[in-house]
C-alpha cells in the first residue's frame, strides 16, 4: 500500500463519511420540503442545538441541569427587550444576549456548583421557577401576556424573512457551531477535564483540575449557546411569553434529547431531537384531533420505554455493541497473555 491509497482510505472512513453525508442532507433538505414540515425541521435543528449545549454541561461534565430553558428564555427575552425598547439590531442584540447570559450563568453557577447529584438538579428547578415568576410579573417584559417584535423588511440584517428557508439555514449554521464545539470538547483538554470531573471529582482534583473553573466553563459555554438559539427563536416566532420559553417541560425536553441521543456524543442530540420532536409533533398532529391528551399519553409512554430499554441513548447502544465485540477480542488476547506468563514463570 503506498501513501496515496492510505490517504484516500482515511478520507472514506465512516467517521468522516457519515457526518459529511449528514451535513449534506441537512443543507439540501429545504429544496424538497416546504411549509409546516420545514417549520418542524427548523425546530428539530433548534432543539438539537439546545441538546448539544446541554450535553456539554450534563453529558460531559455530569451536571444534569433541569433549567436549560432558563438560558434559552433569557437569551430570547434580552434579545427582544433590546429590540423593542432600544431598537437595537437583532444581531447585535443576540451578541449582547449571549454576553448577558454568559455573565448570569457564572453568577448562578458559583453557588449552585457547590451542590451535587439530585441537589444540583433540584436547585436548577428552583432557579427555573424563580425566573418564570419574575418574568410573569415583570411589566417591562409584558408580564404574562408577553411581547411582540416589530415587523421589519425581509433581510438578513433585520433577521426577518418572508420565507422559512433562510430561518432554517440560520439555525442550521448555529447548530454547526454547536457541533464544532462538541468536536472540540471531545478532543481538547477541557473536554477531558469535564469527563474526569463527572467520573470522580476527588481524583480529578488530585490531578490538578480546578473543578469550579471547569464547571463554570461548561456552564458558560452551554448558557451562551442556549442564548444564541433563544435569540434565533424569538426572531423566528416574533413573539415571546414566559410560559412559552420558561416552561419546565422545555428544560426536561432539552435534557431528554441529549440523553436519548447519547450522553457525551457529537451527533446524539440530533438523533434525540429528530425522535422526540417527530414523536411530540406527530402525536399532536395525528392524535390531537381524536382526543386532547392522547398525544401526551403516547409521548410519556415512549419516554418511559426509552428510559427502561435504552437508558444509554441511541449512540450508547451502538457503542455497547462495539464494546462487546472488543471484549471478545480481549478475552482471546488475555488467554494468550496468561499462557505466555505461565511460560515465563516456567522459564524462571
Amino acid at each position: 500500500m503506498d501513501k496515496k491509497t492510505i490517504q484516500v482510505k482515511s478520507l472514506f472512513r465512516p467517521a468522516i463519511i457519515v457526518p459529511a453525508a449528514v451535513v449534506l442532507v441537512l443543507c439540501l433538505l429545504p429544496q424538497f420540503i416546504k411549509g409546516y414540515p420545514l417549520h418542524t425541521l427548523t425546530l428539530i435543528i433548534l432543539y438539537a442545538a439546545l441538546g448539544s449545549a446541554w450535553n456539554w454541561l450534563g453529558g460531559f461534565a455530569g451536571q444534569a441541569s433541569l433549567a436549560h430553558a432558563v438560558f434559552f428564555g433569557l437569551g430570547a427575552y434580552i434579545n427582544s427587550m433590546l429590540q423593542v425598547h432600544f431598537e437595537v439590531n437583532p444581531w447585535v442584540a443576540m451578541l449582547v444576549a449571549m454576553a448577558g447570559v454568559g455573565i448570569i450563568s457564572i453568577l448562578v453557577g458559583l453557588p449552585v456548583f457547590r451542590l451535587s447529584g439530585p441537589y444540583f438538579s433540584i436547585a436548577t428547578i428552583a432557579i427555573g421557577e424563580v425566573v418564570k415568576i419574575i418574568f410573569i410579573n415583570w411589566k417591562a417584559t409584558g408580564g404574562a401576556v408577553g411581547m411582540y417584535l416589530p415587523i421589519r423588511e425581509s433581510s438578513l440584517l433585520n433577521f426577518q424573512f418572508n420565507d422559512k428557508a433562510p430561518y432554517y439555514y440560520i439555525i442550521l449554521a448555529f447548530y454547526f457551531v454547536a457541533v464544532s464545539i462538541t468536536y472540540w470538547l471531545k478532543n481538547s483538554r477541557s473536554g477531558y477535564y469535564f469527563r474526569a470531573i463527572k467520573e470522580d471529582p476527588q481524583a480529578a482534583k488530585a490531578l490538578g483540575i480546578n473543578i469550579v473553573q471547569s464547571k463554570l466553563l461548561a456552564m458558560v459555554l452551554s448558557g451562551m449557546m442556549c442564548a444564541m438559539v433563544g435569540s434565533f427563536y424569538v426572531n423566528f416566532t416574533l413573539y415571546i411569553d414566559p410560559d412559552n420559553v420558561f416552561r419546565f417541560m422545555t428544560s426536561v425536553q432539552i435534557a431528554l434529547i441529549a440523553v436519548l441521543g447519547g450522553v457525551g456524543s457529537v451527533w446524539g442530540p440530533l438523533i434525540g431531537s429528530v425522535i422526540i420532536l417527530l414523536l411530540s409533533e406527530g402525536s399532536r398532529a395525528y392524535l390531537g384531533g381524536i382526543g386532547a391528551g392522547l398525544d401526551f399519553v403516547i409521548y410519556g409512554l415512549m419516554i418511559m420505554l426509552i428510559a427502561i430499554f435504552q437508558p444509554n441513548g441511541i449512540i450508547g447502544a451502538v457503542e455497547n455493541y462495539r464494546k462487546k465485540k472488543r471484549l471478545k477480542k480481549r478475552q482471546m488476547q488475555e488467554a494468550t497473555d496468561a499462557a505466555k506468563e505461565v511460560g515465563d514463570h516456567g522459564a524462571a
Binding site: 483538554r189 477531558y192 477535564y193 469527563r195 474526569a196 467520573e199 470522580d200 481524583a203 480529578a204 490531578l207
Partner: peptide, 16 residues
C-alpha cells in the same frame, strides 16, 4: 480510576 474512560485517557488527564 475514571471508570468509563479507557486507561490511556485516564493517564492523559494526568499528563494534561
Amino acid at each position: 480510576p475514571f471508570s468509563d474512560m479507557n486507561v490511556v485517557e485516564n493517564v492523559m488527564v494526568g499528563a494534561m
